[in-house]
Design a binder for these strands. Structure first.
Lengths: 248, 248
DNA sequence: CTAATAATGTGTTTATTTTACACATTAAAC
DNA sequence: GTTTAATGTGTAAAATAAACACATTATTAG
């Protein structure tokens, strides 16, 4: 960052002292910083997102994403991890920064700029920590309104997830370590909102050669059980492709 | 954002008052917010980025991106536009948010979180406003070190540009309104750092059917002049494809 | 126990897309 | 007017993606 606004510079060299910058930071700064977490899960063949009842009067009764102010001594992703851990009990979770939302009027308490992260978690792995307010999974496709600008944030995060899941092996983070090809296809169909051909889907994943056949079968399914697989991230890291093309 | 840290809530409903939130914001907030602009241009068949000499003693002599603190009453993208306008004289420029960088120690003056935008401008359209410090175009491929964490920011922005340019018609923003197919190919080759087949490149763009043949020819080229085209954004908006696939 | 059900598992054919590749044409430079 | 260096064009081969049907297996219902 180049701080062009300051005029307290040593004129000869036009080089600012550190203390000049520091006081500049102190005086100008009237912006609060928060993080919001878009926590995606997958259940009942649907993409879900974790929401909580808003604790603001203005949005009473409405649902909102999980977020909190960032502590001045806290890294951004650490703040997001803290929120996730508090609410789901999980750490070591796939997380990615989405975008920062800073509209002047997005928060009724004043200027609050929020850095958004999305996470992918395996719903079966965790127990929700319902603390102050209700905490529930909601179908992403059925959400029409949220508190603050959180609908817009959710839409943006979902679109980013849709883009990323097509080029990176994210889908596995939504599933148990062992999964069937049917479950994997269900994840893709839910995220991308399309139907895929079962045979071509299998062919594609076997051709990639990142799935490990565990020689185990599904249990407790009301039909012929399928084989279980897991994803070999090491193999992926070695072989992942860099494609170059123009397509729009 | 759900502000779980506060304990000054109306206990019955667990609903916070606005003033409780406001004072919370006031007291907790010790983080400064800036924007940084990664301004890309294209010249001499190379991708360029606009840099300025750092005005911080600690980074004396090093180059840095253009940035500034965000005014509390200023939108994030407005701050980025302001910087761009100040330095290049241009508005109405392609701009996209990249990511927010907030490492605790990224700025020597204290906690400064910065929202990064990249812009694409046509170098021939503007006159640099060299104010306090030197302002120069640099080959992106030759930059090895920058002040602050700006090298990391540049790398991240460049990678985002590489991804985006393959799926969206951004390249045109780096060229004059009228351009030859050769120039267009040069932009892609510079950004993606690959060589492409001239015939296949032409075939691909003609098939897309977004280029308008202007019935004009290049002038002042030391060889047979090529035809000039421009890009029809309206047609693109109507026909752009949503592709769905899995590829990694 | 048997039959019906509902899912898994597997190959081939066709269409589409991408890649590789060569020669005639045009204007500028000498 | 000859040389030079770029533009402009088409086709064949290869790779990828899409469409498509039937036998198999475990569970469920009768």
């Amino acid at each position: 960052m180049h701080m062009s606004k300051s005029s307290q510079t040593s004129q000869a060299q036009n080089i600012k002292t550190l203390s000049a910058i520091q006081s500049e930071v102190e005086s100008i700064n009237r912006i609060a910083l928060s993080v919001d977490c878009v926590i995606f899960g997958f259940d009942e063949n649907k993409l879900k997102v974790l929401l909580i009842r808003s604790d603001l009067k203005k949005f009473q009764g409405q649902w909102s994403l999980l977020g909190d102010l960032v502590d001045p001594g806290e890294e951004l992703d650490a703040a997001a991890s803290r929120i996730l851990k508090e609410r789901t009990g999980l750490d070591d979770v796939y997380m990615e920064q989405v975008k920062t939302f800073g509209c002047l009027n997005r928060h009724p308490a004043g200027r609050v700029v929020t850095v958004v992260f999305y996470s992918l978690i395996n719903i079966q792995n965790h127990k929700l920590k319902i603390l102050d307010n209700e905490l529930h999974w909601h179908d992403v496709s059925e959400i029409e309104e949220l508190a603050f600008d959180h609908k817009q944030i959710l839409d943006c995060s979902y679109e980013q997830l849709q883009r990323r899941v097509q080029e990176h092996p994210l889908a596995f983070s939504l599933l148990p370590k062992k999964f069937s090809l049917r479950e994997l296809q269900n994840v893709y169909e839910a995220i991308l909102n399309v139907k895929m051909d079962r045979r071509n889907f299998r062919k594609k994943f076997f051709a990639m050669d990142f799935l490990v056949d565990l020689d185990e079968m599904e249990t407790d399914v009301p039909h012929r059980p399928g084989k279980l697989y897991n994803f070999n991230y090491n193999k992926y890291e070695k072989k992942k492709k860099k494609w170059v093309g123009i397509d729009f």
